[in-house]
């Protein structure tokens, strides 16, 4: 990824900007717009009954330190917006939220990956609202991008029609799927600077990109926090304007170890070929 630090041509502190009389705002990125926050400070904003969006996909590239703190906070009656209910087989990421019965309602595409979520749902203590995965993310996009809803061809003629407005556009029927927003969003990135600009790593964009836009207060958990200017503008995967808080997640070395252990434990990584055939 190259850790070389260089000052971009239009860096806020560069001569170009100060020559145009940006005056006291010249160094806004360095001084006044420091979004780096502690998890303690973030948790002060989280209250019972809130709608909380959590990024990642099946527990991978997910803000697992934020989730851990949320589980320990005891905050309850949460409406959770998450693409699934966590790592297949459970016992990771979101699982404690269900075990602790902190979730009142889930808005997801699938809950079956999480035995903990299924158990609470079956007990009657949690409501679930399902949306097809691609429509689910578009609903969040509509919420974040100022649109009135999604005109969706998916689910016509199925039980997904229940309670939804239908429209006919150019002779074809569609469902109107309403926007989704949250009070707080927790997402995961690879690196972020103090202005909240986020850089991805590998398959980390997944749900995190669109979700960043759709919460009143979006928190990004990253493996590395860097100085403003270290992420080149064309490497910014989520513009800092969407981000309210940057928190330190697991450093890369720990990040690697956590997922290696998880994958070995759940049989998704085999120690040696032929050693462990089903």
């Amino acid at each position: 990824m190259g850790g070389r630090v260089r000052i971009p041509a239009l860096h806020p502190c560069s001569e170009t900007f100060s020559n145009r009389n940006f005056g006291e705002f010249a160094c806004i990125g360095e001084e006044k717009m420091n979004k780096v926050t502690t998890l303690d400070q973030v948790m002060e904003r989280v209250h019972d009954g809130m709608t909380i969006m959590i990024g990642g996909f099946n527990g991978i590239c997910a803000p697992i330190r934020c989730i851990d703190r949320l589980a320990k906070s005891g905050v309850k009656d949460i409406t959770l917006i998450s693409v699934t209910c966590g790592y297949p087989g459970g016992g990771f990421d979101l699982a404690p939220l269900f075990v602790n019965k902190q979730i009142k309602k889930v808005i997801a595409s699938h809950i079956g990956t999480s035995p903990e979520a299924v158990k609470v749902y079956k007990s009657g203590d949690m409501e679930v609202e399902y949306f097809p995965m691609g429509i689910w993310i578009e609903k969040i996009r509509a919420g974040g991008y100022g649109l009135g809803g999604v005109v969706s061809p998916i689910g016509i003629g199925t039980m997904l029609e229940a309670g939804k407005q239908k429209v006919t556009v150019q002779g074809k029927e569609y469902l109107i799927e309403l926007p989704l927003r949250a009070d707080i969003g927790f997402i995961k990135g690879y690196r972020a600077d103090r202005m909240g600009n986020v850089q991805h790593r590998m398959v980390s964009p997944n749900t995190n990109v669109v979700m960043a836009s759709a919460a009143d207060y979006t928190v990004v958990e990253v493996n590395e926090i860097v100085d403003v200017g270290q992420i080149e503008p064309d490497r910014v995967g989520i513009p800092g304007v969407f981000i309210k808080a940057v928190v330190q997640g697991n450093a890369m070395e720990d990040h690697h170890k956590i997922y290696e252990d998880l994958w070995v434990r759940s049989g998704n990584l085999k120690r040696k070929e032929g050693a462990n055939h089903e």
Binding site: F57, N58, G59, I60, C61, V83, Y87, P88, T113, M133, G134, I137, E138, R141, Y190, H200, R201, M202, V203, S204, P205, N206, T207, N208, V209, V210, H255, H256, I258, Y259, E260, W263, V264, N268, L269, K270, R271, K272, E273
Partner: peptide, 29 residues
């Protein structure tokens, strides 16, 4: 195999995968 995985490279089943030459990565939308 163990040691060749990347914590941020995975499929929809949350399993580690490898990327081939020509691979592309994008968001859910």
């Amino acid at each position: 195999e163990v040691g060749r995985q990347d914590p941020d490279v995975f499929n929809a089943g949350a399993q580690p995968i490898t990327l081939l030459p020509g691979a592309a990565i994008f968001d859910l939308s």
